[in-house]
């Protein structure tokens, strides 16, 4: 985190470092990195969380109720946005939501205090972009599978006056094609910005106490620290909201593919 001579590089936290275990896959060297480690940690944590909700009791305990709260949240969202057919896509959207949520939250863990280096998987556009592309691919496959070429009617909203179609259709097409980028970019930017902000503020805290005029530096440090607490709380909120937005938009896009307009 802290480089030499008190300089703090807020981007250092996003660096991927190899942890070993490399092999060759189609000409590319694949290594087990800290990014992969945190994905695996998120997967294991998610698995443990879900496993605790598998007791299948008629009257749920706390843990089971918590897990059922999450599953019910996504099921209801799919039901509300797509209808009964949405149940087919619930496993995907649920996996997406929980994976993003756990990655977001695990990246917020204050493990730096212990000297460890938490890595926010979702702060990488390569990750969020691929997840967005998977969602977009599902939309395309389902749309063309179910509606064939009729799927293109998506670009002509219902009730568009005939002379407006040449103008509306390109706009709709562009907005459709932009979806995977906006979807992936939104999560990546929110996570990156939040973590950079936190890191910059923590740099203020450290440099303030190290300042030559200690009284002034202390004021800066204390104020920065108070701000950090607030922003950490905000980031926890953002972690949940961004996961929700990603899942919600995915469900809306799938609805377009399933029901057209």
């Amino acid at each position: 985190m802290a480089a030499e001579s008190g300089k703090i590089d807020p981007m250092h936290q996003f660096e991927v470092t190899p942890l070993g275990g490399g092999f060759n896959l189609g000409g590319h060297e694949v290594l087990f990195t800290n990014s992969a480690l945190w994905m695996v940690i998120a997967a294991i944590a998610l698995g443990l969380f879900m496993w605790g909700g598998m007791r299948r009791q008629l009257v749920p305990g706390r843990w089971q109720a918590a897990v059922e709260g999450f599953t019910g949240f996504i099921s209801n969202m799919m039901m509300a946005n797509i209808g009964t057919e949405g149940r087919k896509y619930t496993p995907y959207v649920f996996s997406l939501f929980m994976f993003i949520l756990f990655c977001n939250l695990l990246g917020m863990l204050p493990l730096g205090v212990l000297g460890l280096h938490p890595f926010t998987v979702t702060s990488h556009i390569a990750i969020t972009g691929v997840l967005a592309l998977i969602s977009f691919a599902i939309v395309l496959v389902v749309g063309f599978w179910r509606h064939g070429l009729h799927f293109f009617s998506l670009f002509v909203p219902h009730g568009t006056p005939l002379p407006m179609i040449p103008i509306i259709a390109p706009i709709e097409f562009v907005s459709f094609m932009v979806r995977p980028f906006s979807l992936g970019l939104r999560l990546f930017v929110a996570m990156t910005a939040g973590h950079v902000l936190l890191k910059v503020l923590s740099g203020f805290v450290i440099n303030g106490f190290n300042a030559e005029t200690l009284w002034l530096g202390s004021i800066v440090s204390v104020l920065s620290f108070i701000l950090m607490i607030g922003i950490s709380a905000l980031e926890l909120l953002v972690a949940g909201i961004q996961a929700y937005v990603f899942a919600l938009l995915t469900s809306l896009y799938i609805n377009d593919a399933v029901n057209l307009h």
Binding site: E29, L31, S35, A42, L46, P91, F94, F99, V130
Partner: peptide, 30 residues
């Protein structure tokens, strides 16, 4: 050097989550 690693591990982990949790655990809970 690490783009391939990122994509590989993302696909492995996410496929695992989708199969084990999305396809295996979620239907039982539902």
């Amino acid at each position: 050097w690490y783009l391939a690693s990122q994509l590989f591990w993302l696909l492995v982990v996410f496929a695992g989550i989708y199969l084990v949790i999305g396809r295996g655990m979620l239907p039982k809970i539902e």
